[in-house]
């Protein structure tokens, strides 16, 4: 019995050690746990202690969504991600993308010998292995295989329905690169439902109606929706939406409304000569 108890005790000790190692590794890897916000499981906060649960689970879900989001970028570049030993190879002038960086850094290297002394032959071997075992030359995804990106957009939004960028960028790829307008609209509608204040999705939706379907009324509706968003919006984004809204009005024959929109652009960027020209042209056409 004593032996069994001691074994159990030892097991607990090891579990604690494992937990401590996990925490240490989280620190080492600089996982920004504090920035994870609960999203997909926000309803859990209704139960006692739910706030903590939702923070933890929300962190897991939104963290997973972030990883899936990074996949889209990885796919776009033929699987290339940051390399741990690339800088060693850069110094040795090995590898495709390392080579031009090598030339670029050559001047800097001449003055700094510290790094040259820092790496030994074993480091070099590890680096060469890693270079050969992982995708190493950035190459843009072939246009015929751009559809391979799409599952990752969908999965990102499944894990985090509040991932506005995934809806907006996914919608763009579907509509413009793959020509799947109906699917793009369906996807972005889902995004707008989940994120009423996600102005990027409404804007993208408006652009699809505007440029692809030439449905200016619908486009106007989504641009206006985007402008009503409570989310923080920088003036460049706002000006962009106003421009699209202005043209949506113009193409429906509402020239005055179009001019009003451009005047708002001008209020944001008073130096914008193009806006002045357009307003003048439209004013004249009205007369």
């Amino acid at each position: 019995m004593k032996g069994k108890e001691a074994q159990r005790h030892r097991g607990t000790e090891f579990l604690l050690c494992a937990f401590a190692t996990l925490c240490l590794c989280a620190l080492l890897l600089e996982i920004p746990l504090q920035f994870y916000h609960y999203s997909a499981v926000s309803s859990v906060s209704a139960i006692p202690g739910g706030e903590i649960i939702s923070k933890v689970l929300g962190g897991v879900f939104s963290g997973s969504a972030d990883l899936l989001w990074l996949k889209t970028d990885e796919y776009l570049h033929k699987g290339v991600t940051e390399h741990s030993h690339c800088h060693i190879l850069e110094e040795a002038g090995i590898g495709g993308h390392a080579q031009h960086k090598h030339e670029h850094n050559h001047k800097h290297k001449e003055t700094d010998h510290r790094h040259e002394l820092k790496y030994n032959r074993l480091d070099m071997l590890f680096a060469k292995l890693e270079y050969n075992l992982k995708p190493n030359i950035t190459e843009h995804l072939h246009s015929k295989r751009e559809d391979e990106l799409m599952p990752w957009f969908k999965l990102t939004t499944m894990f985090n329905p509040h991932h506005v960028r995934a809806y907006a960028v996914g919608g763009y790829w579907l509509a413009y690169r793959l020509g799947k307008i109906d699917e793009a609209i369906k996807f972005m509608k889902e995004g707008i439902e989940n994120n009423p204040d996600g102005y990027q999705i409404s804007t993208q939706m408006g652009i699809v109606y505007f440029s692809r379907l030439k449905n200016y009324k619908k486009a106007q509706y989504y641009f206006e929706k985007a402008l009503k968003s409570q989310a923080k919006m920088d003036e460049y984004d706002k000006a962009g939406i106003l421009r699209f809204l202005a043209f949506s009005h113009k193409f429906q024959g509402h020239t005055q409304k179009a001019i009003d929109c451009y005047k708002q652009v001008l209020s944001l960027f008073p130096e914008n000569k193009r806006a002045v020209q357009i307003i003048t042209r439209w004013e004249q056409s009205k007369e």
């Binding site: 559809d147 391979e148 799409m150 969908k154 793959l178 799947k180 699917e183």
Partner: peptide, 9 residues
């Protein structure tokens, strides 16, 4: 996903 076929990767 989005009625796409032949997604290998």
């Amino acid at each position: 996903f989005f009625s796409l076929t032949g997604l290998i990767k």
